[in-house]
Design a protein around this nucleic acid. Sequence first.
RNA 1: GUCCCCGUAGCUCAGGCGGAUAGAGCGCGAGAUUCCUAAUCUCGAGGUCGGAGGUUCGAGUCCUCCCGGGGACGCCA
Length: 581
Amino acid sequence: MKEQVKKKVSEAVERLFSIKPPDFKVEKPRDEKHGDLATNVSFLLSKTLKKNPNEIAKELAEYLSRDPDLEEVEAVRGFVNLRFSRDFFLKEFSKLLEQGEEYYREDLGKGQKVQLEFVSANPTGPLHLGHGRGAVVGDTLARLLKFYGYDVTREYYINDAGRQVYLLGVSILFRYLELFGKENERPEIKELFQREGYRGEYVVELAKLLRESVGDLLLKGEVTSAKERILSHGYPFELSYTERFSGGEEPDVELCSLFGLDAMMDEIRRDLSDMGIEFDVWFSERNLYERGLVEKLIEELSRKGLVYKSEGALWLRTSEFGDDKDRVLKKSDGSYTYFASDIAYHWDKFRRGFEKVIDLWGADHHGYIPRVKASLKMLDIPEDWLEVYLIQMVKLFKGGKEVKMSKRAGNFVPLRELMNDVGSDAVRFVFLTKRSDTPLDFDVDRVKEKSSENPVFYVQYAHARISGVFREFRERFGRDPESEDFSEFLKELKEETELKLIRKSIMMKDELMDVATRRDPHLITYALIDLAGTFHNYYNHHRIIGSEEKLMLGRISLLKGVRSALRIGLKLIGVSAPEKM
RNA sequence: GUCCCCGUAGCUCAGGCGGAUAGAGCGCGAGAUUCCUAAUCUCGAGGUCGGAGGUUCGAGUCCUCCCGGGGACGCCA
């Protein structure tokens, strides 16, 4: 819609003033009284044309009012307010009826290769609420971009190398020993666990799961046979990490780490897939090292003279590229920092041919952005190639009180707990009710209500109501609104609210396209709530079945279009559109 | 100390790259309705957009400073 109007306005400007129009805006006015769309072009022209904005607006309005698609074009205090004609809306709405959800599609991306990396939680514990929020935002963005013509790859980066994973192994081993009452026999394990271990109950569960197959073999130091037992035990998940057991130093810790990785990754995948989230690529950090990419990266950066040695460590000159200080790539103990592998990872993304990369990070990583951007600059990667969006934390409220931690996970609330409590639809919807970079309070009691207080219910219920009307219509009249076309009766619709519903269903398209380009998926829920509200209001005041036949068929058509608008919105945020509630 | 985010109605929050008289829901007040397809409906009051400057034809929106709240700042991940 906006694009069409923009074209019309540009044309008008060129014809009337014979100049190229500046970069003006066409947007939905805040107040519906000001028309369907409005443009500010006359303000921007007033300087060059040396005329006051309202005069320009008047001339434009007069010119544009000849357009048959536009019913009313008004100059008000410099703005040009446009209102589409009823015929135009009916014409568009017929298209919507014919095409269904496909009406909303548009090829904005032209097949551009976009990678979306999100969640990427460490596999050292269950996903928590914040991860879940990132997962929902990322998945919704992926759905949107895909729908709008981008070639999207969803990727999860697994931090399966480094100290965290080692500590997971230590923690599991400690809990394992504890199961046998032998934790004091390995003081170094106990000490490390108590200092830096993972304290959540889930580690105990992992240890028990491990004991199922290995029995007491690890107590006896028979690590290799323990590994064989794990592999042949028939665990209901892949053991791709355990398979790669190398048996180097501290083989028992290693085995615990690998088994822990397998089990945790399985849990993480299940949590995500139960929320309807599937990844295309699970990218392993280990793999980065195995391919020698980190070394190669450091060579590359050294060649450019951007690396230096100091205090036994290797540093990168990020401060020369916008970061506030230089950063360590390789620690004095010889191991690499996560920063090093992160750059290597992004370098690899670039070399895999992604034209655009979107990362969703936890908000606590915000200080990370300048250094990663700096390093990309060093590698001659264009500045706008990487977009980073931050995901703020989620607080859970139950009975008016904050729920702070879980026994199982330690000091945070696992996503699984919330999902089991309220279901995936509610989780997804509510995670999209605020901009992702601001903190979110999740009121559990609210989403369990069957009332207008509960936005999830409110929107889904609008869809279910329409389905209900259709069911009844089929029963009473033996005609099927799905297959039959009643769009010729749209002209029977005379009510103000009916036109409003038509308008909102059509404008949903602009709304969704905006969301895709602005990467702001939370706006979808607002558009849905708005449309559902208008619908409920209409429904409460008008009868569909039972009104005079032509009018009824017109209203059935109206509902069908509204339903498509609700469906596409729900589909893009991954929330179900129930037929019945 | 440096950096980031936030501060909008009693509450929870919207407010698009600067645009019109700052919006919604809840709550509150008044009225209608218990016939209908399963959240009852309609109307109303309620605001110095944290504060002070500045840029601009125009600022909730951009800039500077201040106040208040949260968070990040490691050879941690």
